[in-house]
Design a protein around this nucleic acid. Structure first.
Lengths: 214, 214
DNA sequence: GGTATTTTTGTCACTGAGCGCCACAACGGC
DNA sequence: GCCGTTGTGGCGCTCAGTGACAAAAATACC
């Protein structure tokens, strides 16, 4: 039982155990976030999370080393999905339109909302903030690939990496802004969030990435 | 505990209770980091830290909510000092020269080395990593001011904040690199660290901030 | 089908973090 | 002297997290 967190669902059929474990972690993650949102982090005990998933407390600690890290799978899933959408972004199309056009299964929407809630909570919960920062940091190399491909250059080039870092910074800041607005009652519907994201990408890249079609 | 105060001459007991508390936290921080470096984090108990400073365990938890957060004061001190030096960076001068030219009291050097050690440990200690990320993140607004001032624009502008976040990311990554090299035996003298930092700043800003004199 | 083996889970006991509560000592003002 | 305030230690508690071992379940092998 490796402690390593898997970023995306294992595809293979054979080692079902791996995928099973991934699903179990995801399930725990969803329940944990639900409880965190309902009662707060400190008010939620590990036992409660375990009960909610029908596991014993001991087993929970075999899946996660701390109760805060329970939020990681959902956070990773959402981040990966977003970066993946970004990767498929065709040239000549406005980013916003592409984001809206992507396929969005309803369960992904729920996870996305949960992730935003976690990001919002992370403002006052250092442990959650650390998870969020680390998860998002893992997306940076992928962003570097996206930038490199778009510019037709090498992902190892300094300029490309810098551009990717800038892009990552813009995406993270905007996501946190949206999460904050969302949590503070200023309800932000999905569309507005996407618009803001695409705007910040445009601002961060000065349009270098090929947004702004015709 | 204390009966006869045979310490130094009676110093003014002003309402400086705030500064006193700050000093006490700093002292705890130094001892905690020393113990963490000597025995590792998990092997160090809160009681040991308390003993090292001559406090009871109960009192330690009044100063810090977790034993890992004991590293925060030294880390903040070092980070603040660095950002402050950056703030005083005059236009038209190479960053590296400015960093070297800054005044560096010997006790700051010890704290700086301790901070690097903490950053190095944070690679494998999630709790320490959380502290480090949060401490450094607090520097971002200040960096935004620096960027804004240098560019003659507003600190609230999205482009400025993005630039500052990029700068922060570059500084953080470089610091972590230096810390890792330092901890892994590849001894990195102070000068080389400063050179690397100024290079990463140049790379992150494309020279926008006005490095590269003449 | 069956059994043997490996993996996963649960139970129990334990350490240690961290806090609530109360008592006590040290200050400073009256 | 008597206060109120503040910092501190002691006691006991809850809960995070782990090690050890047993029960159960999945898997492999026949």
């Amino acid at each position: 039982m490796g402690e390593t967190a898997l970023m995306s669902p294992p595809r293979g059929r054979r080692p079902m155990s791996d995928r099973r474990r991934w699903l179990q972690r995801l399930e725990i993650s969803r329940e944990a976030i639900r409880l965190f949102r309902e009662q707060g982090v400190t008010e939620t005990t590990g036992e409660q999370i375990a009960d909610a998933v029908g596991l014993s407390g001991r087993t929970l600690w075999r899946y996660f080393r701390s109760k805060e890290s329970c939020v990681e799978p959902v956070l990773s899933l959402t981040t990966d999905a977003f970066v993946d959408t970004l990767r498929r972004w065709p040239a000549g199309i406005a980013l916003e339109d592409h984001l809206i056009a992507g396929h969005h299964p309803p369960e992904h929407a729920a996870d996305g909302e949960a992730s935003l809630a976690v990001v919002a909570m992370s403002r006052h919960e250092p442990a959650l903030r650390a998870i969020w920062l680390v998860v998002f940091e893992r997306a940076e190399p992928v962003l570097a690939e996206v930038v490199a491909e778009r510019l037709g250059r090498d992902p190892d080039e300094l300029a490309v990496r810098v551009q990717a870092a800038t892009l990552a910074a813009a995406l993270r800041l905007t996501t946190e802004d949206i999460a904050a607005d969302c949590a503070d009652g200023r309800i932000r519907p999905r569309e507005e969030g996407l618009a803001r994201l695409s705007e910040s990408v445009r601002a961060a890249t000065h349009g270098v990435l090929g947004d702004l079609p015709a």
